[in-house]
Amino acid sequence: MTLAAAGVTRTADGRLILDGVGITPPPGAVTGLLGPNGSGKSTLLRVLSGVLAPASGVVTLDGAPLGELRRRDVARRVAVVEQQADTLVELTVTDVVRLGRTPHRRAWTPLTAADERAVRDALERTGLAGHADRAWHTLSGGERQRAQIARALAQEPRELLLDEPTNHLDIQHQHDLLHLVGELEVTSVVALHDLNLAAMYCDHLVILRQGRVVAAGAPRQVLTEELIAAVYGVRASVTEPDGDGRPYVRVLGTLTRGTAPSR
């Protein structure tokens, strides 16, 4: 058992953002969180991390309600990579990655040898070892994203939540990143926009539309032409060119107004 949500509802400014969402990511697997802009992906990740509390429903970690656990205990287990991060403080890449060790240390204590090993390993795994001493503000958007992922890896989590981590990354680094996530022995939930990246690297998919889960399962089961039309409003062909059970989506065009299938 790991991180899960049941009947989760969340509102903002009187608007329903999540509507009775239930999600049970398979332990040790990569779950892709898909859906159009505004479908609730980022909000759901924040609720799963404990940053936001649900208006109703419950998020559990190993069966215990998240709200009943100490924040430090949750931080030792669950790492989060947001879409964007910035700082006005002069930090090096190594300084940023060292922040991942914070939940494992007492206040004002120096890093241990184990902490430094975790930081070095995270820098190497994300291809940033050569940038360790660079100032954060000199990094490109893609490099900053990789530094944030390195920080999360230095945390040595058992659950990893990533909000559109491939933003700002070129094609090579998109694939490198998702391959890395797939190699980790953690339970991962990653919000993505690219359906083909999700089909290639995710073991399990959850599709959100207007704050509700409309489909969940293996990519081959979930990514159908009918569902893509209903959720995204586009015509698509879905094939399996490699015969490996991983679907490939080719968008053919938008649906004519009024022809999108109803929810």
Rank of each mutant, 00 (worst) to 15 (best):
D19C: 09
R98H: 09
V189N: 00
A132H: 07
L184K: 02
V74H: 07
D115G: 08
E226A: 15
L44Q: 05
L48K: 03
R209P: 04
R10L: 15
V59L: 07
R46A: 15
V97R: 03
Y232C: 06
D170Q: 13
D170K: 12
D115T: 09
V206R: 00
G127C: 09
Y248E: 15
V96G: 01
S188A: 15
V189Q: 02
A118T: 03
Q84N: 12
R71A: 15
V89P: 09
T9W: 14
I228V: 15
L61T: 01
H131D: 12
L45P: 02
P247K: 03
Y232F: 14
T11R: 14
L227C: 11
E159G: 02
V181T: 06
L34F: 07
D95G: 07
L128F: 08
L192T: 02
T187A: 07
L195C: 04
A129L: 12
A129D: 12
R10F: 14
V21M: 08
A5F: 07
R246W: 07
R158N: 12
T256G: 10
A122V: 08
A216R: 13
R257T: 12
A229T: 10
A150C: 05
E68V: 10
A216N: 07
A147R: 00
A29G: 12
D121F: 03
L184G: 02
K41W: 08
V59Y: 05
V96A: 11
A191E: 06
V59W: 00
L66K: 04
L160N: 01
I17M: 13
R120Y: 00
R151T: 06
L139N: 03
Q84E: 14
Q172E: 15
V47G: 04
S42V: 06
M200F: 03
S49P: 11
P25N: 05
P36R: 10
P241S: 11
D19S: 14
A147K: 01
M200C: 09
G243I: 06
H175N: 10
L44F: 04
V21F: 08
D242W: 12
L177V: 00
T2C: 12
R257E: 15
I23Y: 01
S39M: 05
P65S: 13
I228E: 03
E68R: 15
H168A: 13
Q155Y: 05
S39D: 04
A198Y: 03
V97Q: 02
L139A: 06
R46G: 08
G130I: 06
M1Q: 14
R101T: 08
G245Q: 06
